[in-house]
Design a protein around this nucleic acid. Sequence first.
DNA 1: TTTAAAGTTGCGTCGTTTACTAAGGTATTG
DNA 2: CAATACCTTAGTAAACGACGCAACTTTAAA
Lengths: 141, 141
Amino acid sequence: MRLPLKTEYACQVLAQLASTYASGEVRQVEELAAAEHLSPNYLVQILTTLRQAGLVISRRGKNGGYLLARHPEDITLAEIAMALEGGALIESSPGNGGKSAERVRHAWVRVNEAMLQSCGSITLTELIPPRQPQDGADWVI
Amino acid sequence: MRLPLKTEYACQVLAQLASTYASGEVRQVEELAAAEHLSPNYLVQILTTLRQAGLVISRRGKNGGYLLARHPEDITLAEIAMALEGGALIESSPGNGGKSAERVRHAWVRVNEAMLQSCGSITLTELIPPRQPQDGADWVI
DNA sequence: TTTAAAGTTGCGTCGTTTACTAAGGTATTG
DNA sequence: CAATACCTTAGTAAACGACGCAACTTTAAA
């Protein structure tokens, strides 16, 4: 089971937004894309999904951009993954009518619940990147 | 993240084998496939993988078939899933070099470990289908 | 009020993976 | 040696994922 790239990217960009949450300033797509090595056009689609899920807020027009909708401590991996993929984290198939199908299905539903719990205990604050040493500053002698 | 059908089928066929583990008798592909509504040719591929992983034992030739390699209590969902998909249950991508990529990756590795633990606590005995009321017997008056 | 920066939306496409079929090969038994 | 049942590999069609592009809307600033 590969973790979808989209979900991973979503975590990355949310980590970026979390790192500047305190300032209250918006971040623009171009800058976010550059920081996380993503295509701006693709990142927009991810941000749209996150906005519809209520995890980020957007401002349109000139000087627009994105910012986190809540405190980083209140956003978990579970919420992020559920926003990107609908329904469940681990989704088992409709079932093929086999004699053991129903039992197997139920077992994986339990696994999904366990996973929801563990993903629900990891928050965005744990993903905030270490502060860069004066990123764009030219203090060099 | 959809659970691969292959993994689900593997659980189903192993549940079948578990239900007759006590008898020590082998089960043939045709019968197993019929019980779980699968294509025999496809099921063989799954069983081959399970054999290579040491979860089932096969006997070739006439009166051949498959049987569980260990007691059902000693086979977990974690082993089954790991046998089908290599490496990890939740596999995150190589990383794209973004500023938060490494941290995000590490978080999902932790999720994978938690999931391994929960999958490791569900054994085949929980998947054994309820005993059929005299399946093929014609005791009717 | 004009203009340009920025988000919004939907479609298209290309490559990979998945699920499955088919056919020929190999081992075991009577 | 013939029948039976497992073994292996190649091939394929459909679905999915990961984007790219282009036209549209909103809004701040000049």
